[in-house]
């Protein structure tokens, strides 16, 4: 029986890093994450390769306080931050609202009346459950497109929270944002992602 990765010792972790299937699965997830962060396939591939080589080289530093995958992703995250700074593409507050769709304020105005209540046609309706068609290739294509349509800063903070599961203070330190700013950005990212999925999948017939 295969042991969970976090229960293995350093030698076994080294073996895991030689496991082609494990590495390929990890690489796919890392690449997906990196592309969302840097929006450039070649730069993303470079960051993933550097992170994997770094993990392989420094496996003896792995403390086993987290799963191997979490540790490797932490390396990738730092590589991406370095890369973005080097490329001078590191976003600032003015980039928060970049994106193809409505900015945060416009979306909120579209969803809610001035009184603070939902616009009648925007009220959330029940989403189909995963057992009824959500877990299909078509759905993931839509989800992928919706994530990529988020402004860079939104998707980076969103993925740090939802995929890397970093704590608020870690994200704020790394990204140099306040707690309030982070919470607002995550709220807007979720609103936009939700709206995109509503329009393109769950209630595609909506005409707004």
């Amino acid at each position: 029986m295969t042991q969970p990765a976090e229960r293995l010792d350093t030698a076994q972790h080294m073996n895991l890093l030689h496991d082609t299937a494990f590495i390929e699965d990890l690489r796919k997830q890392m690449l997906k994450f990196a592309i969302l962060q840097v929006r450039h396939e070649q730069l993303a591939e470079d960051a993933v390769q550097e992170a994997m080589i770094s993990a392989f080289t420094h496996i003896d530093r792995f403390q086993r306080q987290a799963a191997l995958k979490t540790w490797v992703f932490a390396i990738l995250k730092n590589k991406i931050i370095d890369l973005l700074r080097k490329e001078k593409r590191y976003s600032n507050a003015s980039e928060l609202e970049q994106g193809q769709n409505k900015n945060g304020d416009e979306l909120i105005e579209a969803l809610f009346e001035a009184s603070g209540h939902w616009q009648k046609h925007e009220r959330p309706k029940k989403w189909d459950t995963p057992d009824h068609g959500v877990e299909t290739a078509d759905f993931w294509k839509i989800f992928d497109a919706c994530l990529n349509a988020l402004p860079v800063k939104y998707s980076r903070l969103f993925m740090m929270r939802e995929f890397l599961e970093l704590a608020t203070d870690e994200i704020c330190d790394n990204e140099e944002v306040t707690v309030s700013n982070l919470n607002t950005t995550l709220y807007r990212a979720r609103l936009r992602l939700r709206e995109c999925l509503e329009d393109n999948w769950f209630h595609g017939e909506k005409t707004t």
């Binding site: 997830q29 997906k32 959330p124 989403w127 959500v134 993931w140 995929f163 979720r190 992602l193």
Partner: peptide, 22 residues
């Protein structure tokens, strides 16, 4: 009920993001 639904959708988004993770 709309906000109750919204709350459920926030949790669903989190689960979908994990499942989503070329």
């Amino acid at each position: 009920p709309a906000c109750r639904q919204f709350g459920k959708q926030m949790h669903t988004l989190r689960e979908l993001t994990q499942d989503y993770m070329d």
